[in-house]
Design a protein around this nucleic acid. Structure first.
Lengths: 202, 202, 202, 202
DNA sequence: TATGAATGAGGATTCATTCAT
DNA sequence: AATGAATGAATCCTCATTCAT
């Protein structure tokens, strides 16, 4: 009965996506160790036992999450870098994409950050997060270099500017995860690195 | 005859300081839930029992840590704001102090950040961290405003610039906590917010 | 397919009853603090973990026990007081019921007594036991008064006779709990308070 | 320096008596397992370490307590039995002595009762308490027999009456230990077993 | 004699994971 | 596919006891 099988497969993936989404929220707020399988199961209204039909273990679920989120983010950065347009335009596109992503999934990025910082996570997730951070940093550095060559990005030590730009993006993500309303900040961020500052109106 | 009162007091404070220092490192890397009392005890070469002689519970130890670190950091920001000198000088002093503090105690700040972000920490610590974040953000905003009034700080929306400056400082702390060597970044940071950028030499 | 709701419910109640019964025995002999959850679990042939599936904590289990036993005993006293028949008949019924109850569950009463006497038990259990003792004492006093009005109970200060009758019933329960064979004592007890003593044959 | 030694010895015994008294109170209310050495030390305003100069261990302290209290009580019963006078007079003397003893040391008896009932006490204390209970029960039985032979004690099965008299005395002790004011009950108790009841005035 | 720092075994509780149904 | 009963290793915390001073 191929149709049934196909339907099953569809349901399976739908369920997995749902679990990932809910798990991301819980992991982001409670950390890997602080999140219980029971919590996740309850949040998706299914039994613990059933959860294990969809994910082999807590570690696997977490690692999958980190993997997807970090791959997705790297992809986003690569797309931004490879776009046509001025540095400011590309940076605007990137930050806009990130902010939009954070608006619908404020937790994914946070999970990656925790995996990056913490030793108390599955080592695969930790390693993946570190690779992610390096890759992103490389992309940012490349972006800065290109921007400086066309005088679109302010002068200064590339390595340092890249770090600072990374900090700003990371801070943006953390601010979204904490939960309070984050004011639109994109233009200020772009201004900071392009040297074209707006007026001081509040 | 018993040890003198004074000797006991000295032992107590010495031990407590030692525990705080080690605990900060472990909490920073493993989170509140992921850090075992046993780990801390071993790292200070003392038995679990003795640790409980000095701190009533894991929660109390953690909360004490967050409390001290956040109070200290707020104090640092206040001192920086109240100094004489140009905005650039004061910002330089602040960042220098922070970087130096991070050099000796790279973990304290990280603990506060986790307490800020995570729900899986003692609620007192979480609340304290939130108060801390608001206070610091207020101080940064005030600093930005003053700097803009004397044209020492770049133009732009104060609220947004304050957030971005906060992000940079926070990113600096996270970078230190992760462990890799962090290049000196102070001047680049100052340049970003004063609009006086150096040359693009790597 | 999961077990039916009904089956689960049945398992739960069966297990809980089993745990209560065994726990009563251990608590009666070792006290609240002296009884280990591990002991109870082993005595019911289940893992500690499973026990916590059925009772949230040692304190909750104990309190439940005290609650049930004291409610049941008060009910027994009320039933005895509200029966038709002479004072002697009602007292006989009560003591008979108590002795029968002690024969199947010699420990329940003892648990209530410990909760009454000890400060080292959950305060809810302690309070409940104190309320229980007062209520029972009131019922006994009322019984004595009625019996004296119809000259079925010996003359004498009601308050004092009520205490003494209470002591005798309590002593009966303690004697059963200790474990040795307790000789039938009902008629002697009734004779004591009705003034109709049998012969002195051993 | 014999005088110093003698003085030391006196202090030592004084301290031990103080410790016994305080420990009795705590053991009576919290049980053997529920009472911590630290609690006792604090209650006598001395350090844990010093306490161990006076008693080798918690078990030893407890056992000593049970031993002294049970020996003393048996002695009291023997004295009562061996006195001249009618059964009523001897019973009155005994109960009076017990009530007076309970007034100044309400806890000693309770400790023996717990040692009797509980398995969670040092086995020596438990055994001693059981021997005590048997001995007292024998003495009461002998008293009843003698009293019945001279028609001073009501007729009825000796064994059963002895148990009931024991229950009453035990109940008295428990009532004192619980703490509320216990009304004078001596005469009612004597009346119960001699068959000479007072009037029913409240 | 006197203190309290120090130890470590023991006990309550949690939670990832498995499994019978 | 679905449930939750069942397990036990892991973790927090306590406390009797010892010992340096």
């Amino acid at each position: 009965m191929p149709r049934t099988e196909w339907a099953n497969q569809a349901i399976r993936e739908q369920r997995q996506a749902q679990i990932r989404s809910v798990a991301a929220r819980l992991f982001a707020h409670n950390g890997y160790v602080g999140t219980r399988i029971e919590d996740i199961a309850q949040a998706v209204s299914m039994s613990k036992g059933l959860l294990y039909h969809y994910f082999g273990s807590k570690a696997e679920l977490y690692t999958t999450l980190v993997d997807r989120a970090s791959r997705g983010t790297v992809q986003l950065f690569e797309d931004a870098m490879n776009r046509p347009g001025t540095a400011a335009e590309r940076l605007r596109w990137l930050v806009t994409q990130i902010v939009e992503g954070l608006a619908e999934q404020p937790d994914m990025f946070m999970v990656v950050m925790q995996a990056l910082v913490s030793d108390a996570v599955p080592s695969e997730a930790h390693d993946q997060a570190i690779r992610f951070a390096h890759r992103v940093q490389d992309l940012i550095r490349a972006f800065i270099r290109e921007g400086q060559q066309t005088d679109e990005i302010i002068a200064g030590n590339r390595e340092q500017l890249a770090l600072l730009l990374g900090f700003c993006i990371q801070g943006l993500a953390v601010a979204h995860a904490i939960g309070g309303a984050v004011p639109p900040i994109t233009e200020a961020l772009i201004g900071l690195f392009t040297g074209r500052h707006g007026s001081s109106a509040t």
